[in-house]
């Protein structure tokens, strides 16, 4: 009896590893995988975001002449959806996720696009500039995590910088030349998603099983929800944040 049990464990492990290998080799939505979709909403009216005075750098203020820039701590859609929330699976033990697209952190019109860039540990991303003014990228990780801080300029026309982070952490990133420029590198383990303008998100490539989905927002905090993902189906998780 006991031996059989062990055998079952070993077999299922083999199957799981096989599946994982299959997923890795086949990419998106391999057979048997599920996903988690949902919406993140903001409870109540969106907090007023201050305008940004970019007069320090004429290039920046010119870029925003017709469309004044605002801080992006809370970006809420018309229907109350909250953008820039990072959703990931807490305590993920599976294999690393294959990168299916090149992650780009762009400096455009003296703002970071996207404001929050989610990524897997070890996943490489590119920091690039589309501006005709110099920026510096200065992420400030906690020294205890093992992520090494860096600080590098990108004058106009510089080639992109390719980097990755070792440990999971939400790392604030700033441009010291344009102090209003701030963003986040959300380094998580396993599959992840970032909510869009309307608060919608989809975490792809989640094998069937029970998970705790975590939603993280830079100012509103974190929330978790338990979901069960079935093979080939979409589980749903909806979050509602209160502005702090």
């Amino acid at each position: 009896m006991r031996n059989r049990h062990n055998l079952a464990v070993v077999l299922s492990a083999v199957v799981l590893v096989g599946c994982a290998a299959l997923i890795l080799s086949q990419g998106v939505n391999a057979a048997g995988e599920g996903k988690i979709t949902g919406t993140v909403k903001l409870d109540g009216p969106a907090p007023h975001m201050k305008g940004i005075d970019m007069s320090k750098d004429p290039y920046c203020s010119k870029a925003h002449a017709s469309d004044p820039a605002h801080y992006e701590t809370y970006v809420a859609g018309a229907n109350g959806g909250l953008a820039n929330v990072v959703l990931y699976i807490d305590g993920w033990t599976g294999a690393a996720q294959a990168s299916n697209a090149v992650l780009v952190f762009d400096q455009r019109n003296c703002m970071y696009t996207p404001h929050v860039l989610a990524m897997d540990t070890g996943e490489s991303f590119k920091v690039q500039t589309s501006d005709q003014t110099a920026h510096n990228i200065h992420p400030n990780p906690n020294p205890m995590t093992g992520n090494i801080p860096w600080n590098q300029s990108q004058p106009p026309g510089s080639p992109p910088v390719e980097k990755s982070w070792k440990a999971t952490e939400f790392i604030p990133v700033k441009c010291n030349i344009h102090p209003w420029m701030n963003g986040w590198f959300a380094v998580v383990k396993g599959p992840y998603a970032t909510s869009d303008e309307n608060g919608n998100f989809t975490i792809n490539n989640v094998p069937p099983g029970n998970y705790t989905v975590t939603a993280w927002h830079e100012a509103a905090g974190t929330q978790t929800q338990k979901v069960t993902v079935a093979a080939g189906a979409a589980a749903s998780a909806n979050f509602t944040f209160k502005a702090k």
Binding site: S55, K56, D57, T133, A134, N136, N151, S153, N176, I177
Partner: peptide, 10 residues
Amino acid sequence: GLGHYNMKAY
């Protein structure tokens, strides 16, 4: 520091 040349205001 590195942004010295760019440090200005009007």
